[in-house]
Write a protein that binds this DNA or RNA. Structure first.
Lengths: 139, 139
DNA sequence: TTTCATGTAACTTAAATAGTTACGAGTCTT
DNA sequence: AAGACTCGTAACTATTTAAGTTACATGAAA
């Protein structure tokens, strides 16, 4: 997300993996590896060679957090349910009951995330940025 | 959860760490370590010595999944937000926006989990158990 | 007193994640 | 055409976290 908002703020030109890596204090290769999913989903585009790098693939208003999360292959909940004792009826019942919860919870979270767009986050940044600016002038 | 439902089904006597470990194919020490939080929360009780072991601390109707989750120190969402670049306004805005989501999402999940009790899971097991029984007779 | 069980520290092992190096392939500038 | 630049990706190493193990002290029942 951090990287993506930076891209919104720099829409005119591409940012290299190296620059993006600096933002989040990591390695260019880690960045490429991580956001490869975003590229495959069309959320960002990459170009090689001189002047190349990464840019948003489309308007930030059309990019929801739900889509980003899915493109990155993130899970929305920190647990899954794989049987450890296949055949144990207790376990089967537990898994079934928790799966009902899991499915609904994931639907709920995805719904919420689909209403937040990259543009919203960028606007939030703008707002803060101008607020700080005013404060700085006042002080 | 698997272990806890077993405890519901065996309320009359205590189960040893060894027995519990067998259910989930792991080690007695891992079990003790893991459910220590449940003991501290009064959800289960443990007793030493001959005939000792683990038992439910109170009625399964009064034990919600939300409480179990909290007692185990589980997080409901698979991400937190610790600044990597303190001072970066972009990051601050992203964290703030995502925190809004996180707080509400956690509240929502906890609310859902607070309505599911251990007794519900145990009842689900009972239902399945009797269903299988009938099927077995039919076949 | 012996046996059984938890409580916990300390250590080892295993798995997942992150970071690094290296180099091929494409692209722009001169 | 040459050189500089950047992504794509494989292969490897390092780090971190969780799980598993061993050992033993503590407490309770037979």
């Amino acid at each position: 997300m951090h990287i993506l908002v930076h891209m919104v703020e720099t829409r005119e030109h591409a940012l290299t993996s190296e620059q993006l890596a600096t933002f989040i204090h990591t390695n260019p290769v880690v960045v490429r590896r991580t956001i490869a999913g975003l590229r495959d989903a069309g959320i960002v585009t990459s170009s090689r060679g001189h002047g190349g790098g990464w840019q948003l693939g489309r308007a930030p208003e059309s990019i929801s957090l739900a889509e980003i999360s899915a493109a990155l292959g993130e899970t929305l909940l920190p647990f899954s349910s794989e049987p450890e004792s296949p055949g144990c009826l207790v376990e089967q019942a537990v898994i079934a009951a928790l799966d009902d919860f899991r499915v609904e919870a994931e639907r709920l979270l995805a719904e919420k995330l689909s209403h937040i767009t990259l543009a919203d986050l960028a606007a939030d940044f703008r707002r803060r940025y101008e607020l700080i600016g005013v404060t700085s002038h006042a002080v």
